[in-house]
């Protein structure tokens, strides 16, 4: 394809604009990181800056010194993310496969029941009652795990759509003729052929588990079971209460600005590191999420 002059000009224009956009996207991350290694006094007096006068690793030293606590929170987050994601994908796969079959009677009722949960919810108090008085998940790892198991029924719809459009129904039919059971068809046809979409859903679920802080806020008070996001939240809010009541039980319990920035950075670091490997799954998930159902 020969490019016209006009096309070339447009390409250059597009490249320049996108470089600027990328800068806007990345800049806040850089600022966050720099402020985490800025010396506290410099930060308070000179303000946030990309080129601070004085650098200091005090915040990271502090994190390293309290690594027990922070690594435990990390371990909790990682554990919950891995288990939660696995269970989520399993649940989604199991419900999406039958729904992807055009022959299933009552399909639209089930579809409706799924979609309904996206729009209606009973509110926090009743949900809390059920989880604490019937299931007693308070202060257990289940509290971080269970409320998000099907955090978005929408994922089931995405998977259903993918399976319907990407797995030829002849495959199922011939398997049926061979006498394969539904479970076997699921395991040997739907699961392998749907792998891309399952990975995508897993990536979204993992992200959701990793960034979740609300369940901890409502259900967990045992500091040993904090996730990394909850720890971040607890630290910042403790400062607000402290100023209100004017007492600190132990000195030095106020984390500095730099420390908070450092922990924020540490909390998102793993995601940023694996992000390049996940991009294509994100993209796939988003794309599939909005194709017709």
């Amino acid at each position: 394809m020969i490019k016209s002059k006009q096309d070339k000009r447009f390409e250059v224009f597009a490249s320049v604009v996108m470089v600027i956009v990328m800068f806007i996207i990345i800049f806040p991350f850089v600022l966050l990181f720099i402020s985490s290694i800025t010396e506290e006094k410099t930060l308070l007096i000179n303000g946030y800056s990309i080129f601070p006068e004085k650098l200091s690793l005090a915040a990271y030293e502090y994190i390293w010194n309290s690594r027990d606590v922070i690594f435990r929170a990390y371990a909790t987050t990682v554990g919950v993310t891995v288990i939660g994601t696995t269970l989520h994908v399993l649940l989604v796969a199991l419900v999406a496969y039958p729904l992807s079959l055009r022959r299933l009677p009552g399909k639209s009722v089930f579809n409706f029941l799924l979609l309904f949960t996206i729009l209606f919810n009973g509110g926090l108090v009743p949900t809390y009652m059920i989880y604490t008085t019937v299931f007693h998940i308070k202060d257990t790892y289940f509290a971080l795990l269970v409320p998000n198991l099907l955090f978005s029924s929408f994922n089931a719809i995405i998977v259903r759509t993918y399976l319907r459009t990407n797995v030829p129904s002849e495959l199922y039919e011939s398997a049926k003729i061979d006498g394969a059971s539904e479970f076997r068809i699921f395991r040997e046809i739907a699961l392998p052929l749907g792998k891309p979409i399952f990975v995508t859903v897993a990536v979204f679920a993992g992200l959701n588990y990793w960034n979740d802080w609300t369940n901890g806020l409502y259900y967990v008070s045992d500091s040993a079971k904090y996730s990394i996001q909850q720890m971040l939240n607890v630290m910042v809010k403790n400062i607000q209460y402290l100023t209100q009541f004017g007492r600190a039980p132990t000195s030095g319990s106020i984390p500095s600005v730099g420390l908070r920035m450092a922990i924020a950075f540490v909390a998102m670091l793993p995601i940023l590191i694996i992000y390049p490997f996940l991009t294509k799954y994100f993209e796939k998930g988003i794309t599939l999420g909005s194709v017709k159902g």
Binding site: L124, V125, Y128, M129, T132, T133, D139, L217, Y218, S221, D222, S223, N233, V234, M235, V236, K237, N238, Q240, Y241, L242
Partner: peptide, 21 residues
């Protein structure tokens, strides 16, 4: 004995009380 940090007090304690815990 259970210790609830300040930061979660307003979220956790009213919720607990309202659910009759």
């Amino acid at each position: 004995l259970e210790v609830v940090p300040y930061s979660m007090y307003l979220e956790q304690i009213p919720l607990r009380l309202s659910s009759g815990s």
